[in-house]
Amino acid sequence: MYVNKDKRCELSELIAEIKNGDCVAVGGGLSCREPMAALRELVRQDKKTLKLVGSAHGIDIDLLAGAGLVAISCESYVGFEQDFGMAPNYRRACESGEIKVEDSCCYTLVQQLRAAISGLPFMPIRSILGTGFIELHPEYKSMVCPFTGDELVLVPALAPDIAIIHAQYADSHGNIHIEGPPVADILFAKASKKVIVTVEKIIENDELVKKGVTIPYFYITGISEVDYGAHPTSCYPMYGYDREHTALYYDAAKKGTEIFNDEYLNKYVFTAALNEDYLKAVGGEETLKKLEAWDTSTEAWMELYA
C-alpha cells in the first residue's frame, strides 16, 4: 500500500523504480495513451533484460525492443495494424533470438491478473486447450472440473513487478482519472507490485472526484506530470494520434537497428532528454496545435491520418 501524501516526483525518479530484469506491464493500447515519455526515459536509463506482459500494443513495445531492453515478450499483439504493418524492431529482436517469445492472449492475461488481484494462485479458463499456447506455456496446467466434468486450463497468477501507465489526470495523492478505454490499466494497477504513472495534468482531489477516480491512490507508487506524455500516440481529449511522426519512426525502425539508433533514438530519445526538447524535436507548437485541433472539425481530425 502506498500511503505517502504527495507522490509527485521527477520523471527520472519515477523510472528509477524499474530494475533490470523486472516484469513490466505497459499500459494503454495500440495507438492510444501509451506512456511514451516514460518509456523514452526507460531507454535513457538503459534498464535491461525486461520481461514484458500485455494485450495489444505497438510503438511502445517496439521502442523498447529497438533499444535492446527486452529479454522476454509475453505480449498478445505487437504491431501497427493496417497503418504500417508489422513492428520492425520487435520482429527483428524476436527473430534473432534476442527476445524470447512467450506470446500470450488477452483473456489469458486478464485471468492471470485477476488471480493476482484476488490473492489466488491461479484462475481457470475454458479456452486455450487445443492451441499452440499449451505447448508454448508449460506452466499452464489443466484439470477436470469437479462440478461439470469439463476439462479446464489453469493459468498462474501474474503480478508484474511494475506497471507503467499514462493518464489524463491525477491528484497529488495519486488518485488517477483515465478518460476513454482504460484497456488493461486498471487490472495492471491492481495486480502489480509497483505502479508508476505519468499524467497530462495534476489537479485538486475535489476536481478529480468530479471527473471520477479510475484507480485509487493506494495502488500508486509515484506520479509525474509530463505534457504530451503519450506522444506520438493519442491522449484524447487533449490530443490525437501523430501519424506523421509514427511514420517517421516506422521508416527508421525498418532500416535496421543501427540506423534506428542513429536516426531515431539519438535524435528523439538521447539528445532530447528533456521533455521540452523532445516536443521541440517533433515539431514544437505547430505539430502540437495540429494534434490538439482534432475536435475543431471532422476535416481537421481526418487531416491527422492523411
Binding site: S55, A56, E75, S76, Y77, V78, G79, M86, A87, Y90, R91, C94, E95, V101, D103, C105, C106, Y107, T108, I125, S127, I128, T131, F133
Partner: peptide, 10 residues
C-alpha cells in the same frame, strides 16, 4: 515472428 493474435485464441 508474426504480430500475435490479441484475444483471438480465447
Amino acid at each position: 515472428k508474426l504480430p500475435g493474435g490479441g484475444g483471438g485464441c480465447n
